[in-house]
Design a protein around this nucleic acid. Structure first.
Lengths: 128, 128
DNA sequence: CGGTATCCGATACGATACTG
DNA sequence: CAGTATCGTATCGGATACCG
Protein backbone atom coordinates (compact mmCIF):
# COMPACT_ATOMS: atom_id res chain seq x y z
CA UNK A 1 0.00 0.00 0.00
CA UNK A 2 1.18 3.49 -0.70
CA UNK A 3 2.36 5.26 2.39
CA UNK A 4 0.87 8.50 1.18
CA UNK A 5 -2.05 8.86 -1.18
CA UNK A 6 -1.08 12.33 -2.33
CA UNK A 7 2.37 13.34 -1.22
CA UNK A 8 2.56 15.89 -3.97
CA UNK A 9 0.23 18.67 -2.74
CA UNK A 10 3.33 19.97 -1.04
CA UNK A 11 2.95 22.92 1.22
CA UNK A 12 6.34 22.00 2.59
CA UNK A 13 7.52 24.58 4.93
CA UNK A 14 9.01 27.76 4.86
CA UNK A 15 12.19 29.53 5.70
CA UNK A 16 12.39 29.32 9.50
CA UNK A 17 13.42 32.96 9.72
CA UNK A 18 10.15 34.16 8.23
CA UNK A 19 8.09 31.47 9.89
CA UNK A 20 7.24 33.63 12.88
CA UNK A 21 6.17 36.46 10.60
CA UNK A 22 4.01 34.20 8.51
CA UNK A 23 2.44 32.82 11.65
CA UNK A 24 1.65 36.31 12.85
CA UNK A 25 0.11 37.13 9.49
CA UNK A 26 -1.97 33.96 9.61
CA UNK A 27 -3.17 34.92 13.04
CA UNK A 28 -4.26 38.26 11.66
CA UNK A 29 -5.91 36.98 8.54
CA UNK A 30 -7.46 33.70 9.71
CA UNK A 31 -10.27 35.54 11.41
CA UNK A 32 -13.92 34.69 11.07
CA UNK A 33 -15.11 38.17 10.12
CA UNK A 34 -12.20 38.75 7.77
CA UNK A 35 -12.96 35.55 5.90
CA UNK A 36 -16.64 36.36 5.67
CA UNK A 37 -16.09 39.93 4.47
CA UNK A 38 -13.62 38.73 1.86
CA UNK A 39 -16.27 36.33 0.64
CA UNK A 40 -19.02 38.94 0.50
CA UNK A 41 -16.85 41.41 -1.38
CA UNK A 42 -15.57 38.78 -3.76
CA UNK A 43 -19.08 37.63 -4.59
CA UNK A 44 -20.87 40.96 -4.77
CA UNK A 45 -18.15 43.38 -5.76
CA UNK A 46 -17.95 46.94 -4.41
CA UNK A 47 -20.13 47.41 -1.35
CA UNK A 48 -20.93 50.27 0.92
CA UNK A 49 -20.95 50.14 4.67
CA UNK A 50 -24.64 49.43 5.16
CA UNK A 51 -24.68 46.79 2.45
CA UNK A 52 -21.94 44.92 4.25
CA UNK A 53 -23.78 45.25 7.52
CA UNK A 54 -26.85 43.73 5.94
CA UNK A 55 -24.90 40.98 4.22
CA UNK A 56 -23.40 39.93 7.55
CA UNK A 57 -26.28 40.32 9.99
CA UNK A 58 -24.46 38.83 12.97
CA UNK A 59 -21.63 41.34 12.98
CA UNK A 60 -21.83 44.34 15.28
CA UNK A 61 -21.15 47.77 13.87
CA UNK A 62 -18.05 47.97 15.99
CA UNK A 63 -16.58 44.74 14.65
CA UNK A 64 -17.53 45.66 11.11
CA UNK A 65 -15.70 48.97 11.31
CA UNK A 66 -12.75 47.46 13.12
CA UNK A 67 -12.36 44.56 10.71
CA UNK A 68 -12.69 46.79 7.65
CA UNK A 69 -10.02 49.16 8.99
CA UNK A 70 -7.64 46.34 9.67
CA UNK A 71 -8.22 44.89 6.23
CA UNK A 72 -7.65 48.30 4.70
CA UNK A 73 -4.42 48.68 6.66
CA UNK A 74 -3.26 45.26 5.49
CA UNK A 75 -3.92 46.21 1.89
CA UNK A 76 -6.87 43.83 1.37
CA UNK A 77 -9.34 46.49 0.40
CA UNK A 78 -9.72 50.15 -0.45
CA UNK A 79 -12.05 52.54 1.31
CA UNK A 80 -13.43 55.35 -0.81
CA UNK A 81 -15.29 58.23 0.79
CA UNK A 82 -17.57 60.14 -1.59
CA UNK A 83 -18.01 63.75 -0.47
CA UNK A 84 -21.77 63.78 -0.70
CA UNK A 85 -24.49 64.11 1.85
CA UNK A 86 -25.51 61.78 3.23
CA UNK A 87 -22.01 60.34 3.12
CA UNK A 88 -21.27 57.35 0.94
CA UNK A 89 -18.32 55.04 1.53
CA UNK A 90 -17.39 52.25 -0.85
CA UNK A 91 -15.33 49.22 0.00
CA UNK A 92 -13.63 47.24 -2.74
CA UNK A 93 -11.17 44.36 -2.71
CA UNK A 94 -7.67 45.04 -3.93
CA UNK A 95 -5.89 42.45 -6.07
CA UNK A 96 -4.14 41.35 -2.88
CA UNK A 97 -7.48 40.85 -1.18
CA UNK A 98 -8.76 38.91 -4.14
CA UNK A 99 -5.85 36.49 -4.05
CA UNK A 100 -6.42 35.91 -0.35
CA UNK A 101 -10.08 35.33 -1.01
CA UNK A 102 -9.14 32.71 -3.56
CA UNK A 103 -6.78 31.08 -1.10
CA UNK A 104 -9.62 30.81 1.40
CA UNK A 105 -11.92 29.36 -1.20
CA UNK A 106 -10.58 25.88 -0.52
CA UNK A 107 -11.38 26.25 3.17
CA UNK A 108 -14.97 27.32 2.44
CA UNK A 109 -15.46 24.38 0.17
CA UNK A 110 -13.95 22.07 2.76
CA UNK A 111 -16.28 23.42 5.44
CA UNK A 112 -19.33 23.03 3.26
CA UNK A 113 -18.35 19.55 2.14
CA UNK A 114 -17.50 18.27 5.61
CA UNK A 115 -20.09 19.94 7.79
CA UNK A 116 -21.95 16.74 8.52
CA UNK A 117 -18.79 14.73 9.07
CA UNK A 118 -17.69 17.18 11.76
CA UNK A 119 -21.16 17.15 13.25
CA UNK A 120 -21.12 13.38 13.54
CA UNK A 121 -17.60 13.39 14.97
CA UNK A 122 -18.78 15.76 17.69
CA UNK A 123 -21.79 13.67 18.58
CA UNK A 124 -19.67 10.58 18.77
CA UNK A 125 -17.10 12.33 20.96
CA UNK A 126 -19.71 13.79 23.29
CA UNK A 127 -21.44 10.42 23.64
CA UNK A 128 -18.37 8.92 25.29
CA UNK B 1 -11.13 45.38 -20.84
CA UNK B 2 -12.37 42.23 -19.17
CA UNK B 3 -14.53 42.95 -16.21
CA UNK B 4 -13.08 39.99 -14.36
CA UNK B 5 -9.62 38.55 -14.88
CA UNK B 6 -10.47 35.14 -13.43
CA UNK B 7 -14.18 34.65 -12.97
CA UNK B 8 -13.74 30.92 -13.05
CA UNK B 9 -12.18 30.08 -9.65
CA UNK B 10 -15.72 30.01 -8.44
CA UNK B 11 -16.30 29.50 -4.79
CA UNK B 12 -19.81 30.69 -5.39
CA UNK B 13 -21.83 30.43 -2.34
CA UNK B 14 -23.64 28.01 -0.56
CA UNK B 15 -27.11 27.03 0.37
CA UNK B 16 -28.31 29.86 2.65
CA UNK B 17 -29.77 27.35 5.09
CA UNK B 18 -26.39 25.84 5.81
CA UNK B 19 -24.54 29.11 5.55
CA UNK B 20 -24.82 29.83 9.25
CA UNK B 21 -23.51 26.37 10.08
CA UNK B 22 -20.62 26.70 7.69
CA UNK B 23 -19.81 30.08 9.19
CA UNK B 24 -19.78 28.58 12.66
CA UNK B 25 -17.48 25.83 11.50
CA UNK B 26 -15.17 28.35 9.87
CA UNK B 27 -15.07 30.27 13.13
CA UNK B 28 -14.04 27.12 14.89
CA UNK B 29 -11.47 26.01 12.40
CA UNK B 30 -9.93 29.29 11.29
CA UNK B 31 -7.93 29.51 14.45
CA UNK B 32 -4.26 30.28 14.64
CA UNK B 33 -3.27 27.33 16.82
CA UNK B 34 -5.48 24.92 14.91
CA UNK B 35 -3.88 25.90 11.62
CA UNK B 36 -0.38 25.60 13.04
CA UNK B 37 -1.01 22.21 14.64
CA UNK B 38 -2.51 20.89 11.42
CA UNK B 39 0.64 21.99 9.66
CA UNK B 40 2.99 20.39 12.17
CA UNK B 41 1.13 17.09 12.12
CA UNK B 42 0.87 17.08 8.35
CA UNK B 43 4.59 17.67 7.96
CA UNK B 44 5.94 15.46 10.70
CA UNK B 45 3.33 12.73 11.03
CA UNK B 46 2.33 11.22 14.37
CA UNK B 47 3.53 13.32 17.28
CA UNK B 48 3.36 13.03 21.00
CA UNK B 49 2.35 15.81 23.34
CA UNK B 50 5.82 17.05 24.16
CA UNK B 51 6.92 16.98 20.57
CA UNK B 52 4.03 19.24 19.64
CA UNK B 53 4.85 21.56 22.52
CA UNK B 54 8.43 21.84 21.26
CA UNK B 55 7.34 22.30 17.64
CA UNK B 56 5.12 25.23 18.66
CA UNK B 57 7.14 27.02 21.31
CA UNK B 58 4.79 29.96 21.70
CA UNK B 59 1.79 27.91 22.71
CA UNK B 60 1.00 27.45 26.39
CA UNK B 61 0.31 23.99 27.70
CA UNK B 62 -3.26 25.00 28.37
CA UNK B 63 -3.92 26.14 24.81
CA UNK B 64 -2.14 23.11 23.41
CA UNK B 65 -4.34 20.73 25.40
CA UNK B 66 -7.45 22.73 24.69
CA UNK B 67 -6.84 22.98 20.96
CA UNK B 68 -5.95 19.30 20.65
CA UNK B 69 -9.14 18.30 22.49
CA UNK B 70 -11.27 20.47 20.26
CA UNK B 71 -9.61 19.09 17.15
CA UNK B 72 -10.15 15.58 18.44
CA UNK B 73 -13.79 16.33 19.09
CA UNK B 74 -14.19 17.74 15.60
CA UNK B 75 -12.68 14.59 14.11
CA UNK B 76 -9.45 16.21 12.88
CA UNK B 77 -7.14 13.96 14.82
CA UNK B 78 -6.98 10.86 16.99
CA UNK B 79 -5.53 10.72 20.46
CA UNK B 80 -3.97 7.41 21.47
CA UNK B 81 -2.97 6.77 25.06
CA UNK B 82 -0.38 4.03 25.50
CA UNK B 83 -0.68 2.35 28.89
CA UNK B 84 2.98 2.57 29.79
CA UNK B 85 4.87 4.46 32.40
CA UNK B 86 5.75 7.19 31.91
CA UNK B 87 2.58 7.72 29.87
CA UNK B 88 2.82 8.19 26.15
CA UNK B 89 0.11 9.86 24.08
CA UNK B 90 0.20 10.00 20.31
CA UNK B 91 -1.64 12.47 18.14
CA UNK B 92 -2.28 11.70 14.49
CA UNK B 93 -4.28 13.44 11.79
CA UNK B 94 -7.38 11.70 10.53
CA UNK B 95 -8.18 11.77 6.81
CA UNK B 96 -10.59 14.59 7.63
CA UNK B 97 -7.80 16.54 9.29
CA UNK B 98 -5.54 15.92 6.32
CA UNK B 99 -8.05 17.33 3.88
CA UNK B 100 -8.44 20.45 6.01
CA UNK B 101 -4.70 20.81 6.17
CA UNK B 102 -4.58 20.68 2.40
CA UNK B 103 -7.32 23.28 2.19
CA UNK B 104 -5.26 25.59 4.38
CA UNK B 105 -2.18 25.00 2.29
CA UNK B 106 -3.23 27.74 -0.09
CA UNK B 107 -3.51 30.20 2.76
CA UNK B 108 -0.03 29.38 4.04
CA UNK B 109 1.41 29.86 0.59
CA UNK B 110 -0.47 33.11 0.22
CA UNK B 111 0.88 34.36 3.54
CA UNK B 112 4.43 33.44 2.69
CA UNK B 113 4.20 34.94 -0.77
CA UNK B 114 2.59 38.20 0.32
CA UNK B 115 4.27 38.90 3.62
CA UNK B 116 6.21 41.86 2.30
CA UNK B 117 3.27 43.26 0.39
CA UNK B 118 1.20 43.36 3.57
CA UNK B 119 4.12 44.84 5.46
CA UNK B 120 4.43 47.66 2.96
CA UNK B 121 0.69 48.25 2.92
CA UNK B 122 0.77 48.66 6.69
CA UNK B 123 3.66 51.11 6.60
CA UNK B 124 1.92 53.15 3.95
CA UNK B 125 -1.32 53.16 5.92
CA UNK B 126 0.36 54.12 9.18
CA UNK B 127 2.29 56.92 7.50
CA UNK B 128 -0.91 58.75 6.65
C1' DC C 1 4.97 12.42 30.74
C1' DG C 2 0.79 14.35 30.01
C1' DG C 3 -2.13 16.27 31.74
C1' DT C 4 -6.04 19.05 35.28
C1' DA C 5 -7.40 22.94 38.37
C1' DT C 6 -7.26 27.54 39.74
C1' DC C 7 -6.41 32.24 39.58
C1' DC C 8 -5.75 36.33 37.15
C1' DG C 9 -4.93 40.03 33.69
C1' DA C 10 -5.67 41.38 28.90
C1' DT C 11 -8.46 41.85 25.06
C1' DA C 12 -12.44 40.81 22.29
C1' DC C 13 -16.91 41.89 21.68
C1' DG C 14 -21.66 43.71 22.07
C1' DA C 15 -24.96 47.40 23.46
C1' DT C 16 -25.82 51.93 23.76
C1' DA C 17 -25.35 56.76 23.06
C1' DC C 18 -23.72 60.39 20.35
C1' DT C 19 -21.88 63.02 15.80
C1' DG C 20 -20.43 65.22 11.16
C1' DC D 1 -25.09 57.24 6.25
C1' DA D 2 -21.14 55.99 8.36
C1' DG D 3 -19.11 56.20 11.66
C1' DT D 4 -16.69 57.37 17.02
C1' DA D 5 -16.79 56.95 22.12
C1' DT D 6 -17.74 54.72 26.25
C1' DC D 7 -18.90 51.11 29.12
C1' DG D 8 -19.62 46.47 30.86
C1' DT D 9 -19.21 41.60 30.23
C1' DA D 10 -17.30 37.45 28.50
C1' DT D 11 -13.95 34.82 26.64
C1' DC D 12 -9.03 34.15 25.76
C1' DG D 13 -4.99 32.79 27.33
C1' DG D 14 -0.79 32.78 30.43
C1' DA D 15 1.34 31.41 35.06
C1' DT D 16 1.42 28.49 38.67
C1' DA D 17 0.52 24.51 41.36
C1' DC D 18 -0.69 19.91 41.70
C1' DC D 19 -1.61 14.74 40.14
C1' DG D 20 -1.80 9.74 38.18
Amino acid sequence: MAARPAPDKNCEHIDPRVEALVTELIGRVADKWTMILLEVLEENGVQRFTQLARAVPDISQKMLTQTLRRMERDGMLTRTVHPVVPPRVDYALTPLGETLSEAFCGVWMWAEANLDRVERAREEFDAR
